[in-house]
Design a protein around this nucleic acid. Sequence first.
DNA 1: TTTCTTATGTTAACATTGTTCACTTTAAAC
DNA 2: GTTTAAAGTGAACAATGTTAACATAAGAAA
Lengths: 219, 219
Amino acid sequence: MIKHDYHHGNLKEEFITIAMDFIAKEDVEKLTLKVLSDATGTSRSAIYKHFKNKDALIETIIERGFDKFDVETTPNLKDNSKALVDKFYLTGKLYVEFARKNPNLYRLLFGKKYAHIREEILSIKDEDCSGFAALQKTVEDGQKQGVLKKEESYKQAIVIWATMHGISSLIIDGFMDVENVYEDMYDTLFETLLTGLMANKVKIISTVPVLKKLLQPKN
Amino acid sequence: MIKHDYHHGNLKEEFITIAMDFIAKEDVEKLTLKVLSDATGTSRSAIYKHFKNKDALIETIIERGFDKFDVETTPNLKDNSKALVDKFYLTGKLYVEFARKNPNLYRLLFGKKYAHIREEILSIKDEDCSGFAALQKTVEDGQKQGVLKKEESYKQAIVIWATMHGISSLIIDGFMDVENVYEDMYDTLFETLLTGLMANKVKIISTVPVLKKLLQPKN
DNA sequence: TTTCTTATGTTAACATTGTTCACTTTAAAC
DNA sequence: GTTTAAAGTGAACAATGTTAACATAAGAAA
């Protein structure tokens, strides 16, 4: 007679941890209930005592994922000790680096497959707390300071996001072999973006080397 | 005794057609062998007489998909009757519109899930024929004409692609409700991109209204 | 302490998935 | 006309998510 460990303790949290660790290494598609039951030493149906179904676990993963994403990226935007363009530069870099370091999680958060779950989560969350809201607010600050062109802030924010999302996706989905030239690529991308967004006649201050060079007055 | 239609005729091509039609409406993930067998009135294993496995069918779909994509987008880049910036503007627009009209196919072509199949296909195809090569060449033309900044053409091409891929992905993956303001959004995006890429001192000609306005000399 | 209830686990079973295998039928080559 | 290979069939497999009936353990109630 095999002795079973009933009442594992904190099995629910353990499922979540294992799932997140798994996604850190492999694609969400490969995360099966068997993976979870094997890792916890439970049966394949044990999870249903803690989650309604697999999607409910995924939902939790997405929530945690967005928390992690927010913690690693948005604080920069709100750090007013930094020059405005530097905030954009650094936050953008952190964005791309998050995607590079957590490709499977990034795809889970920003891909199509679980869009229905994401939308449910984001509709509940306070919209003003989202990263995009912080981005848009920073764009508005930039316009007030005369650094950015006067334009609908929503549209400018989308342009910035699309740029960062684009380069991140190309990298993690296998279209670029940029392990080495990644920083160089990012600088070119950001220079182009910032140049396109900037207003003309204002002196802009930055402490980021590549931006200093870009922003120094020409002829 | 049921009479079976042995030797269907062109079942292989029919599988491909049905699969492409399916993807035009629903996500690749929902394309099962049962869908194909039901639609053709065959058994679920019939497909194995024409394709090694499901992935082999997907491979064919991806090949056809890239053909379709190339036909609908790249010819513009090679049309030298158009002004250079207009080529970029129009091709970019066609790119985003392709994604909007064929979201499931776009995701299949440019997503991660079947990246291994895509890479196999693209490694066989003549690289110089790819859309990216055409883009890079146009970038080089732009530099020669003094329209674009002198910069590594590869990097500039990546910047353009990332921008278009980013906005396309955001739209089709459910982050923007731009059914109405889509053209407006694209114009803003393109203006920003072009402004960032342009060289300074050259008069640039365009017949696209929004670009005319952008390019007319200021101050 | 004993009993009851509920949370939390188990096993067995199901439909659906892609896939393989032995078999059957048809078309065409000889 | 016979043979052969191409192109279909159905049964079976393992893996998937899921459900249902059952088992156990922990803690509240007696």
